[in-house]
């Protein structure tokens, strides 16, 4: 079983490294998940993670890449809602990696 240790807590991850229990998520957990991916979260990252959590709260699903770009453009403007910006922030796989760091399930429609 995959686990992630954050402070004194030991959290369960699925085989792809996503949180099993979405309620386990916190800012510290996001930082630990990012560190495991070799990523240091900046305000530009956080902006997208918060957006994703908003998306999930509204639609109850994790977006695939195209809807993520569309939603980001809608909420933050086209200079952030484009594949270049999102790919740069999230190692080329924004839908999968950003969902993981935001504590959402793996996007089901993103093969």
């Amino acid at each position: 079983m995959n686990t992630l240790t954050v402070g004194a807590r030991c959290l369960e991850l699925d085989k792809d490294g996503y949180l099993v229990d979405l309620n386990d998520w916190s800012v510290d957990v996001a930082n630990a998940l990012a560190a495991a991916e070799g990523l240091a979260l900046t305000p530009a990252h956080w902006e997208i993670l918060e957006l994703l959590r908003g998306f999930y709260a509204e639609f109850q699903l994790s977006p695939a890449t195209r809807p993520l770009i569309k939603y980001t453009a809608l909420k933050l403007g086209p200079e952030k809602g484009n594949s270049l910006h999102l790919n740069k922030l999230f190692n080329g796989t924004p839908a999968k990696l950003a969902a993981k760091l935001a504590g959402l399930p793996r996007p089901t429609n993103c093969l």
Binding site: E58, Q60, L61, P63, A64, P67, K70, Y71
Partner: peptide
């Protein structure tokens, strides 16, 4: 169950 109605609202974003 998961909220199908909320999911349906995302159709437009999925094109």
């Amino acid at each position: 169950q998961k909220d199908l109605g909320a999911n349906l609202q995302a159709l437009e974003l999925f094109g």
